[in-house]
């Protein structure tokens, strides 16, 4: 079937079987390999994307669910100049990236949290990341980085308008 949606700000049309998962659509039909398959059953969050502003496991969503909607993947998260945004830089600066396989999903989960709460407690950050498994870091530095970015974005809120959001949406 024909699936049309907005992907990282640009309209796309893909012909794919109706039972294709959104993850397979992104990776195999659109060659966007930033979202990873970690478990295929919606437990690990490595495939996290934003669908109409909601964090979803793209391995569980069927591609037709995106029809007419807006999908943002890790490839759509960056600074206006195409480089890393503040969150991506903070994750690296805090040592929160090791093997990196969970990192794209962590970025999506963190952005989803910060869209609705720019002043999260550490417990709220932990809860927001609970659907994203990381086997390398023990999460401490991921939480530190998100906390720091939230602080920074609060400080600059209003000053830079869209600063720190999804870059070129």
């Amino acid at each position: 079937m024909k699936i049309e949606f907005t992907l990282n700000g640009a309209p796309v049309t893909v012909e794919a079987p109706a039972r294709t998962t959104l993850l397979a659509l992104l990776r195999d039909y659109l060659n966007l390999t930033g979202a990873k398959e970690g478990c295929g059953v919606g437990e690990c969050g490595a495939c996290s994307v934003l669908l109409d502003g909601q964090l979803v496991n793209s391995c569980l969503a069927l591609a037709p669910e995106a029809h007419g909607g807006e999908v943002i993947t890790i490839e759509g998260i960056h600074a206006p100049d195409g480089g890393p945004n503040d969150l991506q830089i903070a994750l690296v600066d805090y040592g929160a990236v090791q093997c990196g396989y969970c990192t794209p999903g962590m970025v999506m989960a963190a952005e989803a949290l910060l869209m609705r709460n720019l002043n999260p407690t550490r417990a709220e950050i932990r809860a927001a990341l609970a659907g994203n498994l990381c086997r390398c870091t023990g999460y401490v530095q991921i939480i530190d980085a998100i906390e720091a970015v939230a602080r920074e974005r609060r400080t600059h809120h209003g000053e830079h308008g869209e600063h720190g959001e999804h870059g070129e949406r």
Binding site: R27, G34, E37, T73, I77, D93, V97
Partner: peptide
């Protein structure tokens, strides 16, 4: 001294290539 993981930015931007990402 504090340093950045040399692969960190690529990984945080989803650009790092794992085997399953290869075509």
């Amino acid at each position: 001294k504090p340093a950045r993981n040399v692969d960190g930015i690529d990984k945080a931007m989803g650009r790092a290539r794992y085997v399953a990402d290869m075509r």
